[in-house]
Nucleic acid binder design. Structure first.
Lengths: 197, 197
DNA sequence: CATGCTACGTACCGATCGGTAACATAGTCA
DNA sequence: TGACTATGTTACCGATCGGTACGTAGCATG
């Protein structure tokens, strides 16, 4: 790491500090100090702190979809198993020290302003995920695919939030089981069908 | 409002600005300017900005439990209906302009440090809610009350997050329906019981 | 009037914020 | 060698951060 170019060291350091402490809480001075670089090096690679934050969030988005597609690839043509694997792996990651939820969601909380780059990155990711989940729940044969997809999205976001509100053994650790229950209840024969006329 | 004491105006203004823009994003100068007061007035009522933020979160916690107990009181001895009413009212509030999720969760995202007062307030609220939900799911007769309570907590936190990631018609609007599905699937006869030996 | 108390404002503090100008150094290719 | 490019460094900018020393207006007492 210390052998890499200054721009790369700064990008890597920013990733760690932004995720650990939040974007607003980390000053550019702290970043370049930890990266053993200086501010002009930062501003030659990134136009502003906001763009550095945007790069950090793009990296996160990219890593997120890698994890997602990895779980998908492990169970071809079985979206339920794909999702379950993704959530089980997520549960593992949530147990690791320093885990602090989804960087994109956190950034959206830190930057409520409508047009902010950090917010745009987060919103884009969440919309894409929502559409993707709806495709998967439809493929599962859910009675109401969009409703189930939204339920799963809520559980996922809830796990992100809970994982930083509770130390361990919080509600987040149940996300895979609850998601599976919800899927089970949304599939197959219409248990909940109301009497017809 | 303009007739009130400086300390009260500051407290009220801080509540609005902290919720709208986030605690870190709002400086004490902005608060006293909007409150038509001055900084010494702020620091005579509050020891620090952090304590002003803590007061803001205590107010939020108090208002949260008022809303919760109001829904409980509306359906005595029917925890499922209590929860459904609470979530339906929450859905209403989420549609109102300027809604930005749970101030306590947002504060915990803004202040990841373990001992920070804002974080303590958030964590205390969430733990209390988790215990309360477990009591309710047990009263419902759920097969696994703690698991269901955690699922409901995840849905709630997910709704908070989603409500600020999607404009309208986001996953959050489904929270009451999904919660009811999950409850339905967790009650009564043991549909999911695994074969014994 | 004089005193004491409460409530508020003016003016300022050092530190840090994001960002930049000017300059030094090193590698590359002609 | 010399010119060019990329990257590093020092030193600084105005603005804003959270926080405070100190002065003053108003009002109730004696």
């Amino acid at each position: 790491m210390p052998g890499a170019k200054a721009g790369d060291r700064i990008r890597e350091t920013a990733k760690q500090l932004f995720y650990r402490d939040g974007i607003r809480a980390v000053g550019v001075d702290a970043i370049v100090r930890h990266a053993r670089a200086t501010k002009p090096s930062l501003y030659r690679s990134f136009r502003s702190k906001d763009e550095l934050a945007a790069a950090y969030l793009r990296d996160w988005d990219s890593a997120f979809w890698q994890r997602f597609e990895s779980a998908v690839a492990a169970h071809p043509d079985d979206p339920r198993a794909q999702l379950r694997l993704f959530l089980e792996r997520l549960t593992q990651r949530m147990r690791s020290p320093g885990y602090r939820g989804c960087a994109l969601t956190n950034a959206a909380v830190e930057y409520p302003q409508a047009g902010h780059p950090a917010r745009r990155a987060a919103v884009a990711n969440k919309h894409r995920l929502r559409r993707r989940l709806a495709l998967m729940t439809a493929a599962m044969g859910a009675r109401q695919p969009r409703l189930l997809a939204d339920g799963l999205a809520l559980l996922l976001e809830g796990a992100y939030a809970s994982s930083q509100l509770f130390r361990r053994n919080g509600p987040a650790r149940a996300v895979a089981r609850v998601a599976d229950q919800l899927i089970e209840a949304s599939l197959g024969r219409r248990r909940l069908t109301r009497a017809k006329h």
